[in-house]
Design a protein around this nucleic acid. Structure first.
Lengths: 224, 224
DNA sequence: TTGATTTGCAAACGCCGTTCGCGAACACTG
DNA sequence: CAGTGTTCGCGAACGGCGTTTGCAAATCAA
């Protein structure tokens, strides 16, 4: 009784068939938003700023997108177009790891992407192509359909988590949390934590591919 | 040269030693914010609304918290106080699973928590107590210190991901994405996806404890 | 009582997402 | 070519947001 809700943006027509033709396109707006986010972070993607960077008025964007969240969805899917999906090799583990590696590189290129992927798991056309590829890789695998879906979701989410952590170390406030940890450890009531902080940081060399190792274990754990 | 940055909120004194005494406390404000989020979601936690629910002016909150993000950190840590941490049993797998189960229940009580935990891995006093407990559980485990830290982070993040997915199925827009998936599958260009959607949903019974199963595999994978 | 110090808070600043209304631009029809 | 139906661009406005400022009121030590 509350009325119908709008369908997902991918199902709405890009251009009207009649009337005055649009001066811009979804792709153009999406590209501007992505560029803004790459440069200054997600919070720089405001309707006004995107519009200004396109040389238009803010209200104009609502001819292409019905909400800011729609724009975020478009941004997510546009990054999914950056994958290069080769034909399955027969070794599903290797193929999935290839996907994960690409995901990691894409997320490094777009530091705002991990947070979006995790909190807003949207599948647009390109995302669906990616899912189809993963299902293709797993076609001969005997696991249940639901397990394959879970594996796909976990693959993306774990990659996002790892990349996010990796990028967080770069930030300027990574030292404040560490300072507090040492403060607590020095107080004496947390001996395990103190012992852990006492050990020197790992030599930076051996722990290189923790991502790949963990991911492989998770996938084999999930898919047998 | 850019000047010193404020320390993390847990290191700042709660009350001044002299002058007019404060009428409220951090805990009181945090509780109000949590109540608001539990009821109406995270976006309902605005400085004005929290202040109003406390019967004060918005600017007053800044006597207790220097930014809204500080308030979010306080909210996160306040939920970490809901754990009941028994002494380690000797079976670290079982003990970690107990932690994960509690985390899941806490996150179900506070549906806004998973998103915060994932995008903002903050450790306050209660969170550090939890970490200390996990380290205690793993005290006799031969893994490297870094691996134990990773295990803790992954334990929390995975629980958040699972709970978030579980809660997302409840939402009203879970049907829109599904509708689009079926639309794409019907188009014919994604046979794997179509086949997957053709299979009926699982019988709801056997896939009960997917969370526990995956978590166990991940932890044993990570810690040997 | 005085003076130092902190608290509460109305008002304001700038930014945000979004809506409204209307003139302008275009395609199609006759 | 004029008319008509439709869409587009967008200035202006609305309500809400996080945060800052300035000052009166409250408290405590001396």
């Amino acid at each position: 009784m509350t009325g119908q809700q709008e369908p997902v943006i991918w199902m709405r027509p890009q251009q009207a068939a009649v009337g005055r033709p649009a001066e811009r396109s979804r792709a153009e707006i999406t590209a501007a938003a992505v560029a803004l986010a790459d440069e200054d972070g997600l919070e720089a993607v405001s309707m006004r700023r995107v519009a200004t960077s396109l040389g238009t008025g803010a209200a104009t964007l609502y001819r292409y997108v019905s909400t800011r969240d729609d724009l975020l969805d478009l941004m997510i899917d546009s990054t999914a177009r950056e994958y290069d999906l080769p034909t399955p090799s027969g070794d599903w583990q290797a193929d999935l790891l290839t996907v994960a590696r690409q995901a990691q590189q894409i997320m490094r290129r777009h530091p705002w992407l991990p947070a979006l992927v995790i909190t807003r798991p949207t599948l647009g056309p390109a995302g669906i192509d990616l899912l189809e590829h993963v299902l293709d890789v797993l076609a001969d695998h005997p696991a249940a359909a639901a397990a394959k879906l879970e594996a796909f979701a976990l693959l993306m989410a774990l990659t996002a988590l790892f990349t996010q952590n990796e990028l967080a170390g770069t930030g300027p406030d990574s030292g404040r949390a560490a300072a507090y940890l040492h403060h607590v450890a020095a107080a004496g009531s947390h001996p395990r934590l103190a012992a852990l902080l006492g050990t020197a940081v790992p030599p930076r060399d051996d722990r290189r591919d923790q991502f790949g190792a963990v991911l492989e274990r998770v996938l084999t754990g999930l898919l047998g």
